[in-house]
Amino acid sequence: MESKPLNVHSIESFGTQDGPGIRMVVFLQGCNIRCKYCQNADTISLEGGTLTPIDDLVKRAVNMKPYFKNIGGVTVSGGEPLLQADALIPFFKALNAEGINTNVDTNGTVTTEAAKKIISEVSDLVMFDVKHTTVEGFEALVKARGLKKVIENIELREQSGKPYWLRYVLVPGITDSDESLEWLAQTFGNNKHLDRLEILPFHKLGEHKWEMLGEKYELQDQEENTQENLDRVEAYLSKTFKNLVIK
């Protein structure tokens, strides 16, 4: 049986920011939420992208195997990749069959059976982007509901006993309050299978993409982090999280 193709926005073959080692990052087209700070606004729309057979992507990944060593592999990002979870399952299985490590970079809000299957069993690594720490804050920032689902999905992964990372975009005045940091520490600090927490300081690199799409970039006047702020956050979180990386 022919597997379903994936709707691909673009491919970065030298991914060093999305998981361990050198990774082929496949950015999928389409997202279910709309974060104000989205850096890949052109991947949000469900329209567009290139339908790409899984075999082509596997071949590309196999060509890259010498660069992966035992550390790197393939990361699927987006957009929200778990919107295409059905097609991802055979893709990840094919990669595993070639000895290639898999990783999905998700906002954690998709709860279909296939998405859960990837989270609990199929993907070698999962990176959850935790957008906010309160229901109101979450909904204001990403224009959708779903913090509860994110927490459930992370719990599902934790229960599976497989490794995962959390990522958190630090936006001054929006996501960096002491309460937010405290919540992160309380909620995830004791998780056994959480391997790494990445703090991604907010910056406006994605602004031009919103402009290109003719859409308003709402964080135009948002200030970026001062070094002082980053130091504060690091000092606070490093008490709880052993592997904390401020990018």
Binding site: E12, S13, F14, M24, M64, Y67
Partner: peptide, 10 residues
């Protein structure tokens, strides 16, 4: 070379 550095090296 629009697929990143490794594709280019390959």
């Amino acid at each position: 070379d629009t697929h990143g550095a490794i594709a280019s090296l390959n």
